[in-house]
Design a protein around this nucleic acid. Structure first.
Lengths: 184, 184
DNA sequence: GTAATATGAATGAATG
DNA sequence: CATTCATTCATATTAC
């Protein structure tokens, strides 16, 4: 009865997820089950893409990337998705930590990419390096969507929730006997 | 992509969620501010509702759901709203991201029960059809309400609206970066 | 063996 | 409804 909150998700016992490593990576140790751990080649490709300016690949690109990367080992699309999400988030995260120091001496541990991150404007952190454009020619990102945006129909967007005042519970009584889910 | 304000009000205060290992009530950790941490019961109810076919509850339903769920812990209406939004979106995302692997056993543990329910309608409740109220019996509701059926909002199965017409392979220039990336 | 770190995975919240 | 950001959890790896 306890728990039931934190570690209820990870299980799998490694039946389906197995295989890790897949084809001939060998760099990993075990790679039994659990989470995906990328091979060196996969990491390199992903890093190259990231350094080339790709930050948030679209679904199509994610599919293509994972397909290509599957040659180096087992991988799923969501792995690519998460990788970019995490990579970008942590870049930003580190930068935020740095900016929040006033007296503490920060330890610049490692700086993989030689990026002189001087935030000219604290308001919005732009890309640290703007010299990634050349490689961008690699990607035909000219996939213009002619009419993907105009299909937007705004349904009820539930504007009320943003205002936390939002008085809803006219009856704030917790009456277990009142009615549970029969209200629906 | 604008700045959109940095809501830094809620500092994390380093509360280790779940570490308490106590009784599954996540709200005890933060309690102050920070994001909503649903309890197991709340998640179960929401999941049941979702599995029952409810995908986009109206404002009215949302307020009722949150009111009833507040019995299990702190909750707001917007939490319910976001929960359904996210759950629906991620179900669809998962289906999409996983389509490229030969592994067909992508059975999520939360889909244990094999109740085949096909949602085929996307309109508002045109006609009340009673086929999704099963989970409601999980709760000790004393008042049987024949109008329960009208809660059910059938899911729109949604098809690919992306009429992809962008040209592919227009520029297949070999790039110095990596040949393997030319697929993008 | 434990602590610290790195990172994959998940999800709440928000925006367009 | 889709996409993205921020925070957190979980685990593998490394350091002590």
């Amino acid at each position: 009865m306890e728990e039931a909150g934190m570690s209820a998700f990870c299980l799998k016992a490694g039946s389906v997820r197995g295989g890790g490593g897949g084809g001939g990576n060998g760099s990993t140790t075990g790679t039994k089950c659990g989470r995906w751990n990328p091979t060196s080649e996969q990491v390199k490709v992903l890093t190259d893409l990231f350094r080339s300016g790709l930050r948030t690949p679209s679904t199509d690109q994610i599919q293509k990337i994972s397909t290509q990367l599957s040659f180096y080992g087992k991988i799923e699309s969501k792995n690519v998705f998460y990788w970019f999400q995490n990579h970008k988030a942590r870049e930003r995260q580190k930068r935020r930590r740095v900016s929040c120091i006033d007296e503490k001496d920060l330890i610049l541990q490692d700086e993989k990419i030689s990026s002189v991150k001087h935030f000219t404007d604290m308001n919005r952190y732009s890309e640290p390096e703007r010299s990634v454009i050349e490689t961008l020619q690699l990607f035909p990102l000219n996939s213009f969507d002619p009419e993907s945006e105009k299909l937007r129909l705004h349904a009820n967007d539930y504007k009320e929730i943003t205002g936390f005042s939002y008085k809803i519970g006219t009856e704030m009584e917790h009456s277990p006997l009142d009615l549970r889910l029969s209200f629906l």
